[in-house]
Structures are given as structure tokens and as C-alpha cells.
Design a binder for these strands. Structure first.
Lengths: 255, 255
DNA sequence: CTTACGCTATAACGTAACGTTAGAGTCAAT
DNA sequence: ATTGACTCTAACGTTACGTTATAGCGTAAG
């Protein structure tokens, strides 16, 4: 009895292409080829295929399998023992990788906690989160609580590096504003920086609508923790920021 | 400060080609390119390379690494967790492979023992080994003990299939001889079969010199275990074989 | 200034084991 | 004769580079 490619493929649970491939590399050459070029596989072919699939399952490469099957003299036991060593080494490597990944995950988790505390030195971005939470009590009716959850979900995954990036970017924006304070809150470069500030909040925390943004500006003056932090950079910056944000929001009212 | 490819490669312990590749796929694009096309890497580039190598060590693919590094928003923790799952599955798969390979090794070892016993039904090839051992006591002085050890070392790794092959081939040769017994031991086809028989012994057991071969022929008649076994195929075959082997050995004396 | 040596560049094939089209022929039933 | 299921070969795509091959660049020594 002879079988055609698809029959064999279905029996063995492999693809036709695989059989073509095995034929190509001489690993499993069909018993017969019809005049029209069809491959016909014999029972013996099927047995050999069994063997092939076994060794493949064991992780041998096709060339190795070919060698093992084509040379009955070949020492299968030694081949299997050597293969076993390889598998064990691979396993050990994987185990180390797993350990390191787990450590990294932990350090990310720990890092976030640490960072949130360390951040108090200098500028603390967490307060924006706080504002968000406070504001959220009012905003909850407007936007639903999904937004609040989104912020927490989002920031909870940030790494040390993320926080550092945020800090750096923020400081850069602040410095640009400070450099233009003398030109007043309407100054084009100040307004540009304000726009970037809003974008940064949107990028890293929550969609900073005009309403929210304006509220944040007020907070800089009304909440002394904010005022203190911001005025560290430059006396009067908090108040200036509030004005600049108001200008910005007035100009973008139509949004 | 900027570094050229080889400098970076040596620092990081990777190849220049690797850096070219990372540039090609946009994973690590050098900070500067000189007018003559030289790649110049900045400190920032080096930092990114560190990250790349870390994730690579962890088994991430380059495209994944690119995604992780290019999108700070990307949830590294989740990526690591998902990756961890993958690694664990891979590890488990490897563990199963190792188990199966070990079982297979054991079954080969066991199979040889079983086979040696099962072989008593029908024709027992082990007796050739025995002969070899007996003969070895005399031959030891001639050839040293390495030969004896070789036989044992060789046959100890044979699988069930190997023994079955040997059995089949032997029986085929015997049958061809039986078919020509009426033409006497000098018959060309008989002599051809005898030559193949000697070759088979050489292939599967030990280098069957003329001296040994002649001794083996005598054994077929002198040792009743052999006589019994061989005469199972056909009455008088053992004696006929002895004659045929003697003819063969006389004809090949010059070797 | 020229030569030489070491470094750098691009281009392109090779690797493992098939997956995936694409275009064309085959077989058996209607 | 047509259709639908199946088959064929050919060739590119995938992953992360290694490995030539050919040619230009840069700097120190003669």
C-alpha cells in the first residue's frame, strides 16, 4: 500500500511542505514517484517517519537525525547521552534567565516604590498624581472613574528610568520658562513650553484637558506643597506658571 | 567622546557585524556618521547598547527589544512577566525532553539485555561473541586484549534494531547457502555467501581474520550448541558450513 | 609624498526548518 | 468537458548574525 503526501501528512500531523522538505534534504525519500511526479510513500517510509519525528521531538536537528538513521552502526546511545548533556545545559541557562528576569521584575516593583520616595528630593511628580486624585473627585462624575484608574494603572508600571525621564523633561521645561519670565506669561516661548508641559502630562499621566490644566495651574498657587516645590527652581515661578497656564487655556478655549 | 565600531565592539564583547546589523534594523543607530561613512557612537549609544545586551541575554528577540526601548511608555514589567512565562514553558519542555531521552537511553540498555535473551529463540548471535571470547584466550597473545575489549565495547551499544538486522542478514545468508547445498561447498554462490558471512562478522563484531574464521567453522561442528542452532535451519548445515569455510580459507591463504 | 597596514564600508550569500504564496499540472467524479 | 481537491516545482521570508569579497579611509613610517 502506498500513500500520497497529504495522506501521510494528515496521519503524522505534519505539513505537506515538511514532507517535501524531508525529501529535498534526503531525510525521507518516498518509495515511489509516479510518472506525473507524485510522491508515494510505503509502510517502511512511514516507519522511518516515526523515527524521524521521535528524534525531532527530542530536539535533534534534521542532519543529526539523518546521520543516526542512515548509519545503523552509529552509536545511538552515545548520541542520546551527548544530547542529554546539551539539553541539561540549555535548561540550566533558561533557569538562570528566569531568575534574572524575576529579579528584574522585583527591582522594577521596588524601584517604583523607592523612586517615589527619592523623588521628594528635588521635584516630586507624585503630587501631580495627588492632584489628579483630588480633581478626580470632582471629575469622576464627568469622566467616570475609569480615568482615575487609568492613571494609577499607568504610573504603577513606571520604572526608575521612566521617572528620571519625566523629571529631566520637566526640569528642562521649567528652565526654559524661567529663562523667559521677564517677558511675561504671554511670551511665545513661554507658551510653547506650557504646551509641552501639558503634553507631557498627557503622555505620562492622564489626558490633560483644559479644565484639568487650569485647575492644576491654580493648585500651584493654592497648595503650598506645590508652591514650595516649584519655587525651589526660582522664586515666583509657581505664580508665573499659573498665569501662563491661564493665558494658554484662554487662548485654547475653542478646543 | 565618540567611538568607532571596533572600539565599541571590543568594549561590549560583540562583533562589528553585530553593530552593523543593529544599525541596519534601527536598533542601535550611531550618533554620528563621518563624511566618509564611519559610524561614531556616543556615550548614550553605549548606554542603549547595555540595555540591548541585557534584554538579549534574557532571551528577548531584537524586535521586541527595539519595541521595549523605543517606547518608554511600554509596560516593561508586563513584558518581562510574559517573557518569564515563556521561559518557564520552554524549561518545562526541555525537562520533558530530558526525561524522554533518559528513558530512551535506559530502554536501549535494557533492550540489549532483553534482546540477548530473546535471541535464544531462533538463532543466537551471542554465541559468536562467546566464541570470540574463547578464541580470544589463545588470540590474546597474538592480538593483545584490545580486540576482546573492542567486541564487548561494540556490541554493548547495539539496539534491538541492530540485533534484528544482524539476525535478518544472517538468516538470509544461511538460506542462500541452503539453497545451494546440493552443489557442494566449492559452489561459487556458496563461497560468495561465505565471504559475506565473514564480512558481516567483521562489520558487527570483530575483524574476522582467516585464522579466526577457520576456528569458527570448526566450532560449528565441535560445539553442540552451535550445531544445534545451525541445524535448526537445515539438517547438516553446520557440517556443510565448516567445509565451505575451510574451502574459503584455503583459497584465501595468501592474504 | 608614497607605501603599508589596519580599520571601515557596503553587498550578498549562508544558516535551520520549514511557511507561504504563485503558477501550473493531475486525478476522479459529475 | 468541467469542476474541485490535490499535487508539483520554484522561490522568497523568517532570525541574528558569520563570512567572504571588494573597495575606500586614516595614519605612521620611509
Amino acid at each position: 500500500m502506498h500513500y500520497k503526501v497529504k495522506e501521510v501528512a494528515d496521519m503524522a500531523g505534519i505539513s505537506v511542505r515538511t514532507l517535501h522538505h524531508y525529501d529535498q534534504i534526503g531525510l525521507l525519500v518516498p518509495d515511489t514517484i509516479t510518472p506525473s511526479g507524485y510522491r508515494l510513500y510505503s509502510e517502511q517510509n512511514l516507519e522511518r517517519l516515526q523515527q524521524i519525528l521521535f528524534f525531532k521531538e527530542m530536539g535533534f536537528r534534521l542532519q543529526e537525525i539523518k546521520h543516526i538513521l542512515d548509519h545503523p552502526h552509529f552509536d545511538r546511545k552515545k548520541a542520546l547521552q551527548a544530547h542529554r548533556e546539551m539539553l541539561i545545559k540549555k535548561k540550566e541557562r533558561l533557569e538562570e534567565m528566569i531568575k534574572t528576569v524575576e529579579k528584574t521584575i522585583q527591582s522594577i516593583e521596588g524601584g517604583i516604590q523607592m523612586e517615589k520616595k527619592e523623588m521628594f528630593k528635588g521635584f516630586d511628580m507624585r503630587e501631580i498624581e495627588e492632584h489628579q486624585k483630588k480633581y478626580a473627585q470632582e471629575a469622576r462624575e464627568k469622566y467616570g472613574k475609569e480615568m482615575v484608574e487609568k492613571v494609577e494603572q499607568r504610573t504603577s508600571t513606571y520604572t526608575k528610568e521612566d521617572w528620571a525621564t519625566i523629571k529631566t523633561k520637566t526640569e528642562e521645561i521649567y528652565n526654559r520658562i524661567i529663562a523667559r519670565m521677564e517677558y511675561g506669561p504671554e511670551d511665545a516661548q513661554v507658551q510653547e513650553a506650557v504646551a509641552e508641559w501639558r503634553q507631557l502630562i498627557t503622555d505620562y499621566f492622564y489626558e490633560c484637558t483644559l479644565d484639568i490644566f487650569r485647575g492644576l495651574g491654580d493648585l500651584y498657587v493654592n497648595d503650598e506643597r506645590f508652591t514650595k516645590n516649584i519655587d525651589q527652581f526660582k522664586k515666583g515661578l509657581a505664580a508665573f506658571l499659573r498665569e501662563a497656564i491661564h493665558v494658554y487655556c484662554d487662548r485654547h478655549k475653542s478646543e
